[in-house]
Design a protein around this nucleic acid. Structure first.
Lengths: 175, 175
DNA sequence: GGAATCGTCTGTGCTGCATCAACCATTTAT
DNA sequence: ATAAATGGTTGATGCAGCACAGACGATTCC
């Protein structure tokens, strides 16, 4: 901190690039705190945090080949198989062979899957309250929107997926 | 999603609570992506992601007993010891006995530690570019500020720690 | 003096995950 | 048509993060 001030020196009022503001460690820290709480909350629903991540990605991304899924989640394909097996056994997802390329399995969220995901998210309210307690509602919504955009890499889904259901959503400005 | 619309029914224009917007899974997802990239970038510096988290917390929190650290990081005390041993061996932190309660070890970031942390954060620029590529500079700064506030649990440090060095920081509105 | 607290060290075991190897179904190239 | 490449599946192996438990020294509080 003082280092930075020292470097700025004669121009301490300028918004100079703030190179040290890396979110990585904070992301890691908060994700851990959230995950620890999520585990116990999710257990009764037969889910674990990683399932939620996969379901969330599937909801956002639409139909996805599972190799593409491996890329998005940055997991090894072989581990994707096991993960999807668990989700398919609970009928939260479906694997269909792609009509275009029948080698490919297209993974899709089932109606049950979407419902279960929704339930899980509701159940996580208290966990989020503990971890994000320092942020008010609008700030959390901003956070969600930023994370969501970063995760999908595009803002295409934003208008359709988010804004329809929430009049206060800030993403209209951003979109 | 449709469930919520159904629930809203006659008042679909109201900004009702958006219960499904949970950040947990997104946090998890992005933290993972960031961590995978961080590992290789940090290795030459002799650090691992968890070290960075600890150093970041220490920088933000000032002098901290290591039991308090265990609480903040939500790690077992015994694992904290090992983590701190590694950092102390590299002289990035110091353990001093607290003058008030000499049972307690107060953990403090050394000058070298602050410097190394700063270097690491610079080195992580490209990793962050990949993961947060969908966000522009101002959005990343907003994200950092939100995560930072959530992590420290208070907004006390905000004015001192962040805003002095960055004129464009949005936290003035929030503070 | 005795009990409780903070930190340290050691060992044990579970879990997540990467990696390797072998295999089937399907598509693409020759 | 045959061979090669691709997507997916399965099983085995090994490492690392981490929780947990037990024992110990140092210090404080009653």
């Amino acid at each position: 901190m003082f280092l930075q001030i020292g470097r700025l020196g004669h121009m301490s009022a300028q918004p100079l690039d703030s190179a040290e503001h890396r979110s990585g460690a904070l992301l890691d820290h908060l994700a851990r705190r959230m995950r620890l709480r999520s585990e116990s909350v999710l257990a009764p629903l037969g889910l674990r945090p990683r399932h939620l991540v996969a379901l969330t990605v599937l909801r956002a991304g639409g139909d996805t080949g599972q190799q593409a899924l491996a890329t998005i989640l940055e997991m090894d394909s072989t581990n994707i198989v096991g993960l999807l097996n668990e989700l398919e056994a609970k009928q939260l997802i479906e694997r269909r062979r792609s009509p275009e390329d029948r080698r490919r399995h297209v993974v899709e969220l089932t109606k049950d899957g979407a419902k279960r995901l929704s339930e899980a998210e509701c159940a996580l309210a208290s966990a989020e309250d503990e971890v994000l307690g320092a942020l008010d509602h609008a700030e959390r919504e901003t956070l969600y929107e930023l994370l969501s955009r970063a995760a999908t890499g595009t803002s295409i889904n934003c208008a359709e997926t988010i804004c329809v259901t929430n009049d206060a959503c800030r993403c209209r400005d951003a979109c």
